[in-house]
């Protein structure tokens, strides 16, 4: 029994190391000339269902604060600061959308849309958010998976 536990422990350590090695840090993200990001941030496929809940979560993505999304018409109050996101999964490539999520300023110069996965946490950032990204790497991949379902 002891032997098996040990084995299991070393196995899960190996897994954790593997995931860690693959996860891209904000500093390492590679953008194309137009702000697209080809490579997944985690190597783990995005979970669209979780992405949908992050999309409307006021503390995390809060995308609904600024974007109308007909797919969520059951939710009250969609914001109008940005364009509606209906059809974005068809109008943009996966790499372009990933880039927009990570740092939309590379795609839209001077945009109000927050950069969700960047190192520079802004000027005078509140202590509890300082040095942190708004979304975790897997959150970005999950929201991306959800956006790709918005094809009409």
């Amino acid at each position: 029994m002891k032997h098996i536990t040990l084995l299991a422990a070393s196995f899960s350590t190996a897994l954790a190391t593997a995931t860690f090695a693959q996860e891209v840090t904000p500093a390492d993200v590679v953008f194309s000339e137009y702000g697209a990001v080809e490579a997944s941030l985690t190597g783990v496929a995005g979970n669209a269902e979780n992405g949908a809940s992050l999309f409307q979560n006021r503390k995390l993505g809060n995308c609904l604060a600024c974007h109308v999304n007909s797919d969520m018409s059951d939710q009250g109050f969609h914001g109008e600061v940005g364009p509606p996101l209906d059809g974005v999964g068809a109008n943009w490539s996966e790499a372009e959308l990933r880039g927009i999520l990570i740092n939309s300023k590379n795609t839209f110069d001077g945009t109000i849309m927050p950069a969700f996965f960047v190192e520079t946490a802004g000027v005078r950032t509140l202590d509890k958010f300082a040095g942190k990204t708004i979304l975790a790497a897997q959150d970005v991949e999950d929201i991306l998976a959800y956006l790709l379902t918005l094809t009409e």
């Binding site: 914001g79 109000i112 946490a121 802004g122 000027v123 005078r124 958010f129 708004i134």
Partner: peptide, 28 residues
């Protein structure tokens, strides 16, 4: 006009560029 905070916005981003539109349930 200086953008601040983790969300990196200035007063002007909301109150000049976007007044009159909804930001979730708030009418800017």
């Amino acid at each position: 006009f200086t953008r601040v905070g983790q969300l990196d916005m200035a007063c002007a981003n909301c109150h000049i560029d976007n007044y009159g539109v909804m930001i979730r349930a708030d009418h800017l």
